[in-house]
Write a protein that binds this DNA or RNA. Structure first.
Lengths: 136, 136
DNA sequence: ATAATCCTGTGAGTATATCTCACATGTCAT
DNA sequence: ATGACATGTGAGATATACTCACAGGATTAT
């Protein structure tokens, strides 16, 4: 429960996300334009991405590489939740809020199957990939 | 071992670190100037901070708030190193360190208030603070 | 008391990073 | 060939960050 809270905190500018995901800025913005991700913004309108955003981007990338188009990705991936849309932006007075993005396990299972070709229950490649960056 | 590698990955620009630590850019740069932290740089010379850097900054902040000066913080904290093992090298600032060391008042303060029950560099309280952001 | 030192604020001027918008291009599938 | 899709690229503007210098309050030393 409390586990996932900070994964929603907006931390990274697009430059870092580009390196983390090996996607171009154009691609990242394009995916946002199509509501695949909804990164937070600074007061100056700069995008700020959370761990969850990076995870989603890695999933998106994997699907793209499999030839899935945007519409297909929309079908397969969890829709961006209301809660995620108001990602936690860090401000001087931010008291971190508790929120839980818990629903649509069905979507998650579908996504995992499509992405990894594995049976549900297995950790997806993508999640494993992201964990290489900050979990271990 | 592989555990710590990613904690050392440069991810955050200074603006994010300011919010995470509630330190001013001036302070952060000043601490770097005195080698308390050594953030990475982008190709364009922008600072990039890792989780470890943020952790160190939170430790530094806690010490500052206790009235410890830079020299004292240097004494108490683990030296910055790429490898866990680092030889004690005599550097140009050794002289300064020695002079500060002669301040028995400071030394006693550090020993009593900061290293009580702990080994230097293991500031569990502060690490707990960082975990509020990422681990929970 | 005066001087020196430490730490942080602030401003100027410059450089880097990111933003939006528009147009171009390659790849498919009609 | 036409068109939709996904991405590249460039221009112009804004935001963020950089270094350097000076200022000043608080402490510490002379």
């Amino acid at each position: 429960m409390g586990d996932e809270i900070r994964r929603n905190m907006a931390l990274f500018p697009i430059g870092i996300v580009m390196k983390l995901t090996d996607l171009s800025a154009r691609q990242i913005r394009y995916y946002e334009q199509h509501s695949l991700i909804v990164p937070a913004r600074t007061s100056g309108n700069q995008r700020l991405f959370s761990f969850n955003d990076v995870e989603r981007l890695l999933e998106i990338k994997a699907l793209i590489e499999k030839g899935v188009n945007i519409a297909g990705i929309k079908q397969v991936m969890n829709p961006v939740s209301k809660e995620s849309e108001e990602a936690t932006v860090i401000t001087p007075d931010t008291e971190v809020r508790r929120r839980e993005l818990s629903d649509s396990q069905l979507h998650r299972l579908l996504k995992q199957e499509l992405v990894s070709g594995k049976r549900p229950g297995q950790v997806s490649l993508i999640q494993g990939e992201l964990s290489r960056f900050f979990n271990k």
